[in-house]
Design a protein around this nucleic acid. Sequence first.
DNA 1: GGGGTTCTTGACAGCGCTTTCAAAATCTGC
DNA 2: GCAGATTTTGAAAGCGCTGTCAAGAACCCC
Lengths: 342, 342
Amino acid sequence: MRENVTLSDVAREAGVSPSTVSRVINGTARVDARKREAVLRAIERLGYRPNLMAKGLAQGRSLTIGVVTQEISSPYYGEMLKGVEQALEGTSYHPIFASGHWRADQEEAALKVLVGRQVDGLIVMDGSVPQERLLELAQSMPVVVVGRSIPGLRCLGIDNAQGAYEGTRHLIELGHRRIAHIAGPQSHPDAIERLRGYRKALEGAGLPFDPALVVEGDYLEPSGLLAVEALLARGALFTAIFAANDQMAYGANVALYRRGIRVPHDVSLVGFDDLPSSSYFTPPLTTVRQPGLEMGWEAARLVLALLEGHDYTPKPLAARLVVRESTALLRSSGVRWVHPVD
Amino acid sequence: MRENVTLSDVAREAGVSPSTVSRVINGTARVDARKREAVLRAIERLGYRPNLMAKGLAQGRSLTIGVVTQEISSPYYGEMLKGVEQALEGTSYHPIFASGHWRADQEEAALKVLVGRQVDGLIVMDGSVPQERLLELAQSMPVVVVGRSIPGLRCLGIDNAQGAYEGTRHLIELGHRRIAHIAGPQSHPDAIERLRGYRKALEGAGLPFDPALVVEGDYLEPSGLLAVEALLARGALFTAIFAANDQMAYGANVALYRRGIRVPHDVSLVGFDDLPSSSYFTPPLTTVRQPGLEMGWEAARLVLALLEGHDYTPKPLAARLVVRESTALLRSSGVRWVHPVD
DNA sequence: GGGGTTCTTGACAGCGCTTTCAAAATCTGC
DNA sequence: GCAGATTTTGAAAGCGCTGTCAAGAACCCC
């Protein structure tokens, strides 16, 4: 099998012109059945594979969709990327990823890379690139943003406040009154929203909001651990924790475990996101499900649609409480749960 | 800012020829300082960004490195992909990913996509595409495989048998005699190796190998849970479990938790891989660390080196036991641990 | 100041494919 | 069987960039 079989090679082999071969491949025009056959045979025989770069150059598009995530290895983005991948399967588009690492400059660099690679569409997940920049990009290609809401752009995402409300509400319904919140970084809109939902739930139940029960983390496990340490250090009393994401809930759980505080026996724990691993966490984590896979999927479908000139408003995605085993009724006795490691 | 600023636009603006602009951009030849200045200013003024597809077509390379993983959302591959991404940062290469989903046909499809996109190099992680196919590809571009060992190709990976040996050995040293093994799918070479390491450790300690203590899983959480159920159902007696990967260990842990069997108090648990979440598992999981990030990083560096004509043998990567809190000394009393859920 | 070097530069031919455009082939209906 | 309408087909001009090549500019030494 020769190295670089080109379309002209096929044409020569089949005894037709390159144009005809192109037409057969793309079905862009009707071609005599016999010639078509000859072309297909030649393709087969030579093992021809079209050069997508040449095709892209000629067509002025790359058949490529850029996806900006913040951290490719994060389980949260992993699900979304999988969704994107699934949605693009079977189409002639292929995703290409770049990470912003939660830093505007790196995000901008990621965008530059993708634009330089002539992506035909863009999916931006979270991040802090200025709105104007995204709007500018949207003038030259379809842009869908996930997890942020930007007027003038197609945005996908759940109602974070609502989700947080439900998570907190669940704890309240179990009888908890002193519910701590491990908040996400307050530079993230979604973290702010979740804090808001938490407060709204307290309010709705006539419970006071106690700033001493709130600690800000950074959405990563260690900060959840530290948050619990901080709460304990400051002598805060609580019987439940609502963490702004699962990863911090994991960290919190370890801190409690180390102290011999049992979940959910002593303290109930609710997360947010429902990472794939959360149902196999011990105890299986009660959490607010954010449908990452669906979000990625929808985002990609929407970009594809826009690329074809259709526009539509995707059905809204809902955050849904998933009750597992990390939450329990407040123990009636009201026994102080704080006991030293034995 | 105009839509598609091309190199010729820059040339016109700067009052030089396209060739000169190209030379300035790529530093391929010496250019008069004044003209260079003019070009740079023009680039700035027009907001010019080179079209990488055109560049690629002209140069016969795409500045792109294909990465075949099995499942992009898996935490295990996540780490490796991050490593690849990091290694490529700052170079002019960019990774493009495709997933094989552990199926030879999908893997082949992924390879086709990547080859069609003219990737300049290839990193293949695990999978079951025939050796010959990879060797064939290696004739036209650098290929590095991770997690498989193929004669004639640069391969990266840890010694799975050795890792499993150490994990098992650790349990033996803690006094455990009846150690169950949740094996990986025996269609995967690494799973076979890990089982081998487990057996070798038993042998080395003069312990009998009991097939009744081995259950085969599929590397995913549910299979770990099912494996423990199966062990219990068949009345197997064990005081420790060595799981062939962390995800199955997670599942096993849930099964034990549900039965009220405490880890590590009643049963010690060792995993394999050391996923990022394992140190925040409860209890933090003792596991055999497979340096995913480094593996991805090394693979990418190696491809880059090959691309530049250098070849080298990367320093071997070692599996390393990480002792955390899911393993403990066998309780001296020898008390039967199997107790029904109360 | 002229012949010979060495640098710098622009014209131009691709890279592999698509896509007009107009010529060639085929098909109408009478 | 022929004028006209309709397909099918190939030639050729790009897409935006690189890289060769040879011409032009700048330099050297005697």
